[in-house]
């Protein structure tokens, strides 16, 4: 077990080094950071929402959108780079199991996404902290209650987003393990992420009374197979209204996230098991 972890960590290390050298990563990383920083300049266009909510939404959007794109494209790209360049041939001829290889790939990509989330969350925290302090001072002058902004909640939100991206990476790895081409893996992976994001809709539909039939069965299958990626989006509740999060919510979201990661990695290993390299 120790040896298996050691080998997976070496795969993760090289995957991490490969990923951070990619121009695509640098491009989305800079774009995401620029979006968060630009939110301070365009906060006048807050469309009637509170200013802090506007700033937070910008940051949450950047994390969500660019994180998802990175998670899908980078996972498929790094997986197929090993297959197409035939480096997998050299690696898998060593006493390295396919499960260890996939675990290493997952950890390496997830670590890169961790850096992405950490930096964007730190920038967002700086923006929110700076503006919240200014607004608190203004509120004090007017003898009003200061706006709510919980930076510890932001750290929790960042951790949840990292976990959500972990589910995305594991899901795309499972798709890539069965796919023949990079493009197929990206398209199907992106569709799976989109379906996961909308999974709550099928949950709601399932709750409505309906005749048992093929449609109902398909809905049931969709609800139970796809992860509910929307459940990780607790940004508003954690940062701007911390008292709204119930006690059991976070452990449940955390545990279901971990369970989905494990389940998709097991599926990826099963699909990759007999793939011809």
């Amino acid at each position: 077990m120790k040896a298996a972890c050691h080998r997976s960590l070496w795969i993760a290390r090289i995957t991490f080094l490969e990923a951070i050298r990619q121009r695509f990563f640098a491009f989305l990383f800079i774009l995401g950071a620029a979006l968060v920083l630009a939110s301070g300049a365009v906060r006048v266009f807050d469309f009637g929402h509170s200013e802090l909510k506007f700033l937070a939404d910008f940051g949450f959007g950047g994390l969500f959108l660019f994180g998802s794109i990175l998670g899908v494209v980078m996972t498929a790209q790094l997986f197929f780079a090993e297959i197409d360049n035939r480096t997998a041939l050299t690696l898998l001829a060593k006493p390295l199991s396919r499960a260890e290889f996939l675990a290493g790939k997952f950890l390496g990509i997830w670590a890169v996404l961790g850096v992405f989330v950490l930096v964007l969350a730190a920038l967002l925290a700086a923006m929110l902290g700076w503006r919240a302090a200014e607004l608190a001072q203004l509120a004090a002058e007017r003898r009003l209650a200061p706006p709510e902004c919980d930076l510890a909640g932001l750290a929790l939100y960042a951790a949840l987003q990292w976990l959500r991206l972990g589910v995305v990476v594991a899901m795309v790895l499972a798709v890539a393990a069965a796919a023949r081409t990079f493009l197929f893996a990206v398209v199907v992976g992106a569709l799976a992420v989109l379906a996961g994001q909308l999974q709550w809709l099928s949950q709601e539909l399932l709750l409505k009374p309906a005749e048992p039939g093929l449609g109902h069965a398909a809905l049931w299958l969709l609800t139970h197979l796809l992860p509910n990626l929307q459940q990780f989006n607790l940004g508003d509740a954690l940062v701007l209204a911390p008292h709204q999060v119930t006690a059991g919510t976070l452990p449940w979201v955390f545990l279901s996230g971990v369970a989905y990661v494990v389940a998709f990695l097991v599926l990826a290993t099963f699909l990759f098991r007999r793939r011809e390299i």
Binding site: E18, R86, T87, K94, P95
Partner: peptide, 23 residues
């Protein structure tokens, strides 16, 4: 393998060290 391809961003020594750990 035939026509081997290795990670270009590693030095020769780093590549062999990587493979030593995997082996």
């Amino acid at each position: 393998p035939e026509a081997p391809y290795f990670h270009k961003f590693l030095s020769g020594r780093e590549l062999v060290r990587y493979c030593a750990h995997l082996s």
